[in-house]
């Protein structure tokens, strides 16, 4: 643990992410006001002691909505990374293990997915399937499959050549057991690092889709959606356009730094790509 917290990136990222997670968990049991309750008398109020972040066009408390918005963001992050991890790792392992034709097919398909304009494809998918949080998660998650597949393939390929795997094989251990006991544990840390980064990307992507009206649907609070609504009232209620955006930037920055910190501590050899 001490090793992690001596890294500045990790400490800052961990603290920032923790704030987001705590806000989301807290919002499940308590928010300053009911996040969805409209109150026409309180419309478009500026920041005050009762409403620290002001209110929106329906008189809803912005702080409460930013807090519940964190729940949507975290769910989207978790589910999309889960989609990418589960299928990506499977395909990546298959690619590395079977090689040749299987590898070629899987890698070329992932090339094709990479080549397509992601925003456009996500918009297409969400509008074909209908705008909703679940479909937005699918649209984002699909793009994560090749990301994790390539990473798994790259790491697993070098692992399978290593001596301890040959030793296990010589000892009569089955291929499945080798994969489960020796290969998977060794690719966990790169997957964890990549997963944290993709979690941050998912928060950004969900916000963009929700901003376009294709993600989380009202009345459920979502940061992107709040910014969309804020634009109409920008000259009268600028705070509406500031706080949800700050929340997005905070969360993404937090998880990005957390990913960087994990990479610094878990994998000092890994070349910084960005």
């Amino acid at each position: 643990m001490k090793r992690f917290f001596s890294n500045l990136n990790f400490t800052v990222g961990f603290t920032m992410s923790l704030v987001v997670v705590l806000a989301a968990v807290l919002s499940l049991v308590w928010t300053p006001f009911d996040a969805d309750k409209m109150n026409a008398k309180n419309r478009l109020q500026g920041p005050s002691w009762t409403h620290p972040l002001g209110t929106d066009q329906y008189g809803r408390d912005t702080l409460s909505r930013v807090m519940t918005g964190a729940v949507s963001s975290i769910i989207v992050g978790l589910v999309t990374v889960a989609i990418g991890l589960s299928l990506g790792v499977l395909l990546g392992l298959a690619s590395a293990y079977f090689g040749k034709f299987v590898d070629e097919v899987i890698m070329r398909i992932s090339d094709l997915l990479f080549g397509f304009p992601a925003v456009l494809t996500a918009i297409l998918i969400t509008s074909i399937l209908g705008p909703s949080m679940i479909n937005a998660m699918l649209a984002i998650g699909i793009f994560y499959i090749p990301v994790f597949a390539r990473l798994t393939r790259a790491v697993a390929m070098t692992l399978w050549e290593r001596e301890f795997i040959t030793a296990a094989r010589a000892g009569g251990v089955g291929e499945w057991t080798i994969t489960w006991r020796h290969v998977l544990p060794n690719i966990l840390s790169p997957l964890l690092i990549q997963g944290t980064v993709q979690f941050a990307v998912a928060i950004l992507a969900e916000a963009s889709l929700s901003y376009l009206g294709l993600g989380t649907q009202p009345p459920t609070a979502s940061w992107g959606r709040m910014l969309n609504e804020a634009q109409t009232f920008m000259s009268r209620a600028p705070w509406m356009a500031i706080f949800p955006g700050l929340a997005i930037a905070w969360a993404v920055l937090g998880f990005n730094l957390l990913g960087d910190g994990l990479r610094d501590t878990l994998d000092p050899k890994m070349v910084r790509m960005r």
């Binding site: 941050a200 963009s208 804020a230 920008m234 000259s235 500031i242 920055l253 990005n256």
Partner: peptide, 29 residues
């Protein structure tokens, strides 16, 4: 650059409108 990676581009767009169009009036919104 960490900030640049974390800020959604549409929010940056909105902030620019807020500052340069709404406050300063230099650009159309």
């Amino acid at each position: 650059t960490q900030f640049g990676l974390a800020v959604p581009e549409f929010w940056l767009g909105i902030l620019l409108i807020l500052f340069f169009s709404v406050k300063l009036g230099w650009f159309a919104a």
